[in-house]
């Protein structure tokens, strides 16, 4: 699975980093930073959770 983030859409809510801190971080402007774009299997569920919870819908998962 591959993760894509749209930094143009991101509003820095930080939901992603809260639920999946091993995959997402925020830069100084609060915008999402991907720590990895291909998470290992054990992190796929939290990545999916982050994508659903992102209020700006800035995270897409490609299976």
């Amino acid at each position: 699975m591959k993760i894509r983030v749209d930094r143009d859409a991101c509003i820095g809510a930080g939901q992603c980093a809260l639920v999946a801190g091993s995959i997402f971080d925020q830069d100084d402007d609060g915008l999402v930073v991907l720590l990895t774009d291909t998470p290992s299997d054990e992190f796929i569920a939290v990545a999916r959770k982050a994508a659903t919870l992102c209020p700006a819908k800035a995270i897409a998962l490609e299976e």
Partner: peptide
Amino acid sequence: NMPREFRQSR
């Protein structure tokens, strides 16, 4: 204008 600190403060 402080998103990162906002998240930490949650």
